[in-house]
């Protein structure tokens, strides 16, 4: 089975019903995608499937065949953060960090899709990503700041 992961063509040879999150983490060593609940509630496992945020814990990899998957590893590196990641660093958008990759992927899809960057729109876009540390305000600020190009 073939799929594109972070712009690279990959072939997957394991069980077709393996979850996308497990294929990413175990077969492609992309452990940036986290599992928080296995129920599709917390959004920590969010990746983009053909550009749209989805819960990778609820997708058998066979349903990703032939499609494009983007994970946190496609964003900036520690020494060269993307604008959005830099926004999170500057505004306190990450604390324990376990929700952060999923949060960033959802925020990235929202901004890339032309979503509005006012407080209410960002909160609505991120409603599927639970964070227990921040109370969300600094996450929302981070997204808004990145969207406005502030550092």
């Amino acid at each position: 089975m073939k799929l594109t992961v972070n712009g690279k063509k990959k072939s997957f040879k394991g069980a077709p019903f393996k979850r996308l999150i497990d294929a990413l983490r175990e077969d492609f060593a992309l452990t940036g995608t986290k599992e928080g609940c296995g129920e599709g509630e917390c959004g920590a496992c969010t990746v983009l499937l053909d550009g749209e945020p989805v819960n990778s814990c609820l997708i058998p990899v066979c349903q990703a065949a032939g499609r494009k998957v983007e994970t946190i590893e496609s964003m900036g590196a520690p020494e060269k953060l993307s604008k959005l990641q830099a926004g999170f660093l500057a505004c306190g958008g990450a604390q324990c960090g376990i929700c952060t990759p999923g949060m960033l992927m959802t925020a990235h899809a929202h901004l890339k899709g032309g979503g509005k960057c006012d407080d209410a729109s960002v909160r609505t876009a991120l409603a599927g990503n639970l964070c227990r540390c921040t109370g969300y305000q600094d996450i929302v600020k981070s997204v808004v700041a990145a969207a406005k190009g502030k550092k």
């Binding site: 983490r25 990641q85 500057a90 604390q95 960090g97």
Partner: peptide
């Protein structure tokens, strides 16, 4: 001061137990 553990967490490089090979 920016959070020291920030860059690793923001890029998915931070290794939680289940990420450690």
């Amino acid at each position: 001061e920016p959070r020291r553990d920030g860059p690793a967490k923001l890029t998915g490089r931070a290794l939680y137990l289940d990420d450690v090979a």
